[in-house]
Design a protein around this nucleic acid. Structure first.
Lengths: 67, 67
DNA sequence: CGATTTTATACCTGAACGGGTATATTTCAA
DNA sequence: TTGAAATATACCCGTTCAGGTATAAAATCG
């Protein structure tokens, strides 16, 4: 699942604002915004810190078949 | 699977040197080294460029149970 | 509707990523 | 063993990430 969607989804499910999530993860509010805005150049460790709040982490997965 | 192991594994399977991989991915040799050395602060987009050579990409996955 | 909260956009800046390169160190074949 | 290739470590430095902040837009709610 796409990262930005996943974060936004989880955040909504837990009824958190972007600020809530930023505070809990110990990252900047701007980072959360860029994360949900599909910025691709984010640092992996920061992304993982946020994902871990939702019991997840980044892993290599096979690409969907594109023919 | 852990990212660093995965990259190194795939690279060996395809019999590529770190330089080969760096050149094909269009990233620096140093980046490949840090990637295989488990550096956590790498940029997501660069990691994905390398992973795509092996038909993979970073995705959020559930953390292994830790009790 | 208006007021408050939440989200989005823009700017400034310190910190650090990542490229390149030089120099060990290790690996491996002849 | 020896020499070349591959990998590891260390440095300089331009680019840019990410924090903070201010402002604007959008969403939420009484």
């Amino acid at each position: 699942m796409k990262l930005s969607k996943f974060i936004k989804q989880q955040r909504k499910d837990y009824k958190l604002t972007q600020r809530d999530l930023a505070d809990r993860a110990g990252v900047g509010l701007r980072f959360i915004r860029e994360l949900e805005a599909e910025k691709l150049t984010l640092r992996m460790d920061k992304v993982n810190i946020v994902l871990e709040l939702f019991g997840h982490q980044l892993e290599p997965r096979p690409l969907p078949k594109s023919e």
